[in-house]
Nucleic acid binder design. Sequence first.
DNA 1: GGTCACCTCGAACAGTGTGCGAGTAGTGTC
DNA 2: GACACTACTCGCACACTGTTCGAGGTGACC
Lengths: 236, 236
Amino acid sequence: MSAKPFSSVWTRERKGGREQGLSRDQIVRAALELLDAEGLDALSMRKLGARLGAGATSLYWHVANKDELIELVMDEVYSGVVVPEAADWREAASVFAYGMRQAVFDHPWSASLIGVVPALGPNALTSADRLMGAFVRAGFEGIDVDYAMTAVVSYTLGATIPEVAFLSSLKATGKSVTELQAAVDPLMTKLAADRPNLRERYRSYTHQNFDPIVARRLAFEFGLMALLDGLGTRLR
Amino acid sequence: MSAKPFSSVWTRERKGGREQGLSRDQIVRAALELLDAEGLDALSMRKLGARLGAGATSLYWHVANKDELIELVMDEVYSGVVVPEAADWREAASVFAYGMRQAVFDHPWSASLIGVVPALGPNALTSADRLMGAFVRAGFEGIDVDYAMTAVVSYTLGATIPEVAFLSSLKATGKSVTELQAAVDPLMTKLAADRPNLRERYRSYTHQNFDPIVARRLAFEFGLMALLDGLGTRLR
DNA sequence: GGTCACCTCGAACAGTGTGCGAGTAGTGTC
DNA sequence: GACACTACTCGCACACTGTTCGAGGTGACC
């Protein structure tokens, strides 16, 4: 156990200086572009440096290490989710959920990072604050505010991550949905032999020619509404 | 776009052979041990080979590449979650949710993989089949079976991933919860200035000396019950 | 003109996943 | 017993990776 101090970019004082040449914001922006264009694996310090017309090791003046850089870029993702300041709690929660979902869709590489990297950046915090405000105004009391908010965030995360991961692996292979179905089909029919419920469901899917992408979206709506209903009964 | 075929371990025929010396199961078991003991970053083909008394490249006879290996090990994680075959749907959903949560707790490295890696292994599929069966028996109809099940899985995932990630980053630094709170505190008080709801919540947390670990667990229960309530009203 | 903090960056280190091709060992056939 | 063939192991090499170190430059202030 090396017992290095807990450190997030956000817990350190930012270096203040002359800010000529490279700047932290510039680096973060370039990293975001690179990630959006080529995905998580394509982000290397050397490539990022090259993109900025700088040496790879120059970046280390502005950023402690790659993990910190990623924390910074992740907060940019949160900047895409805006929660209305004065709104009904259900409205606020919905807007948050769909906003978050969209933000991850816009930056698919974030799917494998979003619950894992600490979200202490300014954008993440303002989103959380806004959402929390809506729950407070709605009448949730004490620790329930936290619980209710966490529930919405959890559901949104858990629904979005696999959805986006699926879509990007699809894009990476260059196959269409139907091609993929064809690839998975033999496996499915074989494994579904002693899994009756799965088999039945799979059959009705393929027969109806149901687009799994729109199905996912409908599923997101369904679960979110159910959760909000359940939270609603806990008001008072 | 390289257009390589979509491939998962589960979509390929398994090599049949003499099975002397190394075997795929043996490799997967050793990988699981290594991951549990030292975490995701510690898993390298060379280290894994050494652990098995074999050369690193020998592994490539039994496993196409590291990603495939990880798919295989991930299915071992799912083996920890068992869903009772005959049970009330709420009971089944609860057992699944807590089982999944526990499985990720038992293998913290899986937190950053669990929604991202395709879950087409036998263990993942039987869990899904059992859970689905419970919803079918409960009376959910048509696509609602899917929606309801997906909602439970999504919530469980989204709640568990950050929780486990937080705990393992805590363990990695070797700090206690209170030490971490002390580290984050100056940041918090500074940033909470123009985030009134967050500030209020943060104050009541630190004043009550509330253990965030048990708080997380209570939050999990709260959200799960709310979701199940909401799903219940959609029966009939 | 000198000093000093800010900033850049090439070289080097210790790793990583994996393709290739040579080599070995065990089984089946004549 | 000889031969062929398949299953399997593995050293080498390649093209990367994140990061440290220390040497240099460059502009601002005294």
